[in-house]
Simulated scan of single mutants.
Amino acid sequence: MANLLGPKHVAQLGAYIREQRENAQYSLRQLAQAAGVSNPYLSQIERGLRKP
């Protein structure tokens, strides 16, 4: 299967998630808990360091 998320797209997706989280007035911790993922993992996604 082709790699659909290149580094640029991962960073853009992370920025979008962070923007939406902040607009919804959710803390990183709150969103991580709601999504069922760890705080560090969500933080890495938002910073474009990890592919979701």
Rank of each mutant, 00 (worst) to 15 (best):
A32M: 00
L28I: 15
S43A: 14
R50D: 09
G36I: 02
I17V: 15
L5E: 13
V10K: 09
I17T: 11
Y16F: 04
Y41T: 11
Q25E: 15
L5Q: 15
E46S: 00
A24C: 01
A35K: 03
Q20I: 05
Q25H: 14
A35T: 03
N23F: 01
G6Q: 04
K51L: 13
K51I: 14
L13S: 09
Q12H: 04
G48D: 08
L5V: 11
G48M: 03
G14A: 09
K8S: 12
N39Q: 12
Q30E: 14
H9I: 06
R50G: 05
Y26H: 12
G14D: 08
L13Q: 10
A11H: 13
E19G: 05
I45C: 06
L4R: 14
L13R: 11
Q30K: 12
L42N: 02
A15I: 00
G6E: 12
S38M: 02
K51S: 14
V10Y: 04
E19L: 10
Q30V: 10
E19R: 12
P7N: 07
I45F: 01
H9T: 07
L42P: 04
S38V: 03
N23K: 15
V10F: 02
R47D: 01
M1A: 13
Q25G: 02
P52L: 00
K8M: 10
Q25S: 15
L42Y: 02
L28N: 08
Q44L: 03
N39D: 13
R50Y: 10
R47Q: 13
P7S: 07
Q20M: 12
R50C: 07
Q20Y: 04
A2N: 07
A15N: 12
A15C: 07
A2R: 14
A2L: 12
Y26R: 09
V37R: 02
L28Q: 15
R21K: 12
A24M: 07
N39F: 12
S43H: 11
E46R: 02
N23W: 06
S27I: 04
R29C: 02
Y26A: 01
P7I: 10
E19M: 07
G14N: 11
L13T: 13
L28C: 11
S38I: 06
N3A: 13
A24K: 03
A35V: 03
G14M: 10
L49R: 05
H9Q: 15
R29E: 15
Q30G: 00
M1S: 14
Q44N: 06
L13E: 05
Q25F: 08
E46V: 06
L28A: 07
H9W: 09
V37E: 00
E19C: 01
M1G: 15
V10T: 14
L28G: 05
Q20P: 00
G48R: 00
R21V: 10
Y16T: 10
Y26V: 00
P52D: 00
